[in-house]
């Protein structure tokens, strides 16, 4: 019974990690770099959800909408100020790293300027947890799981079946060839950033519901990174599987050794994974291009 309870809590946690990991992997896929501004973007959009919607007594749906829209808009803005010129001038991809780190500092700086070091809480959107056959299932967990699953399914459909998705896949495969085939590469990359930002906004709200809102909450993004490393860097299904696995492992670990040491163990798990199977679960093998 206890194990089943861990499983339920783990899947709920894992679905948030999955949102983070897919948002991160999407950009990794398209531009082949790790977007370190993703965490700060989550923070920024979660806070805008608080200040624009939840703080004014609006409900859950408007809060999510505001955060998602902010995430998408800010992400698009970030693409324009930090990545566009590097892309068009074909400067070394190393600069993507520096840009994204800087962008992260910028977002976090803006949040700190507004809120200082204070903690904020979303109002309680949900009632008491359900009791099903001796197991506690929080209402928030059910909603979070359902919305995350819907968002990820929508994303999968978009990438697999639509024209934009096909463009996205071909741009990730080879930018120059895609552009020769008449695909508008810039537009496609913008699209990827919008989707990734929207996912970041969604994940930000859910993290805010599960924990509290504070300016450095973006560091939870590490979990998303670890999940995508476990799943296989750049693979979307891998990222989701990795995230679920990480969520379940983490809730189990926390109940055994306490929440304090949990980051240490998740880190060790990642190291072991890299030693044993560096390609991750999905086994995508991305070599650095010459």
């Amino acid at each position: 019974m206890q194990i089943l309870q861990y499983l339920i809590n783990g899947i709920a946690l894992g679905s948030v990690y999955a949102l983070i990991a897919t948002g991160f992997s999407l950009i990794f896929n398209v531009l082949k770099f790790s977007n370190f501004s993703h965490g700060a973007l989550m923070t920024l959009s979660a806070f805008s959800g608080y200040f624009i919607a939840a703080g004014n007594g609006w409900g859950l749906v408007p809060t999510i909408l505001v955060s998602v829209l902010t995430g998408a808009a800010v992400s698009l803005f970030g693409e324009f100020v930090a990545f566009r010129r590097i892309l068009t001038h074909n400067t070394s991809p190393v600069y993507f790293f520096v840009s994204s780190i800087t962008l992260g500092t910028l977002y976090e700086g803006i949040v700190v300027l507004k809120v200082g070091a204070n903690f904020y809480n979303y109002p309680r959107f949900f009632g008491k947890p359900y009791r099903i056959a001796g197991l506690f299932v929080a209402r928030s967990d059910i909603i979070i799981f359902c919305i995350s699953a819907a968002a990820l399914l929508l994303l999968a459909y978009m990438i697999r079946k639509t024209k934009t998705g096909r463009a996205l896949r071909s741009v990730s495969f080879d930018r120059d060839t895609a552009s020769l085939m008449g695909i508008n590469v810039t537009r496609t990359i913008q699209f990827a950033f919008i989707v990734s930002g929207a996912l970041a906004g969604l994940a930000g709200v859910f993290l805010g519901i599960n924990y509290t809102l504070y300016p450095t909450m973006g560091s939870i993004v590490v979990k998303g990174f670890i999940a995508s490393v476990i799943g296989g860097l750049g693979s979307l299904p891998g990222a989701i599987i990795g995230a679920m696995l990480l969520g379940i492992l983490e809730t189990t670990l926390i109940s055994i050794i306490g929440s304090g040491y949990a980051p240490v163990f998740t880190f060790v798990i990642m190291l072991v994974f890299l030693l044993v199977r560096p390609r991750g679960i999905a086994g995508s093998n991305i070599q650095e291009k010459a």
């Binding site: 790790s34 370190f36 790293f97 490393v229 040491y261 240490v264 880190f267 990642m270």
Partner: peptide, 29 residues
């Protein structure tokens, strides 16, 4: 460094980021 130097360079930044979090947790606990 051992597991990461053989892989592409993204790994070292991801792994060290996780490492930083782990060390902070350890120092706090």
């Amino acid at each position: 460094g051992l597991p990461t130097v053989r892989l592409r360079r993204d790994y070292i930044s991801l792994v060290t980021l996780g490492f930083g979090e782990a060390i902070t947790a350890l120092l706090n606990r």
